[in-house]
């Protein structure tokens, strides 16, 4: 288990603040999720019809943790900043690429990633920005370390497609009928290299 110093932008001051990325979701992170994160999500969802709730409002990270922890090939990440949980991610290294240029080669696949409710523009003015950037960076870096040359893939929730397509420069491969018709994205090794360089 390793901790990395990363940065987020605090909206109130528009300044970079130090945050911590841990390459393993611990019980204390799940306790934070079960506390303030979950409460904020429930408060936001109260009285709203299904279509007005965040797409991941029903995700149960405690249940997810119980599922992935005994398995090999899964890696989890948690970002904390100023004493609070800001983002969670689960990836696997078992899937292979679909895009023609790298078809069949192993990728790091982002199983789930989410930012805390208070960082979501659809809920409120985000307290911190940059959780997505840090998480994609972590996925690319893990892919690099595993020898996958930065290749990653994921199914984006509909509201996040802009981030993966336009901000991260990932390739859109269409809606995946086998995955609740979510849009599938992949990052090639060349795109990963550009991402790592900050382009």
């Amino acid at each position: 288990m390793q901790e990395s110093r990363v940065y987020l932008v605090k909206s109130a001051t528009k300044q970079l603040v130090e945050a911590s990325l841990l390459d393993e979701v611990m019980d204390r992170h799940l306790a934070m999720w079960n506390g303030s994160w979950s409460a904020a999500m429930q408060a936001h969802c109260a009285g709203r019809v299904l279509r007005d709730k965040p797409e991941d409002h029903h995700w149960d990270w405690k249940w997810k943790a119980g599922e992935w922890r005994p398995l090999l090939g899964y890696h989890s990440f948690a970002i904390t900043c100023e004493g609070e949980l800001q983002g969670l991610m689960l990836v696997s290294d078992l899937k292979s690429a679909r895009i023609q240029a790298q078809f069949g080669k192993p990728i790091v696949y982002v199983e789930f990633v989410a930012t805390a409710p208070w960082n979501r523009p659809e809920i409120q003015t985000p307290r911190y920005r940059g959780v997505g950037t840090v998480m994609v960076t972590a996925a690319v870096e893990l892919s690099w370390e595993l020898g996958y040359r930065g290749r990653i893939g994921l199914h984006s929730l509909p509201q996040a497609e802009e981030f993966y397509r336009d901000k991260c420069g990932m390739i859109e491969l269409g809606k995946d009928a086998a995955h609740q018709s979510l849009m599938y994205y992949e990052m090639t090794d060349k795109q990963a290299e550009a991402f790592r360089l900050g382009h």
Binding site: Q2, E3, S4, R5, V6, Y7, L8, V9, L16, L21, D23, P54, E55, D56, H58, W59, D60, K64, H75, L90, V110, E111, F112, V113, A114, T115, R120, P121, E122, P126, R129, G130, V131, G132, T133, V134, M135, T137, A138, E141, L142, E145, L154, H155, S156, L157, Q159, A160, E162, F163, Y164, K167, H179, Q180, L182, G198
Partner: peptide
């Protein structure tokens, strides 16, 4: 796994991220 990116790198990339949603992945349900 350890990330070794400079503060300037994060400043540049996070500015690019802006105010967008980032959720990915569909749970089985």
């Amino acid at each position: 796994m350890k990330l070794k990116r400079s503060k300037a790198w994060y400043a540049r990339r996070i500015a690019l991220e802006g105010d967008v949603e980032i959720g990915a992945g569909a749970p089985p349900c």
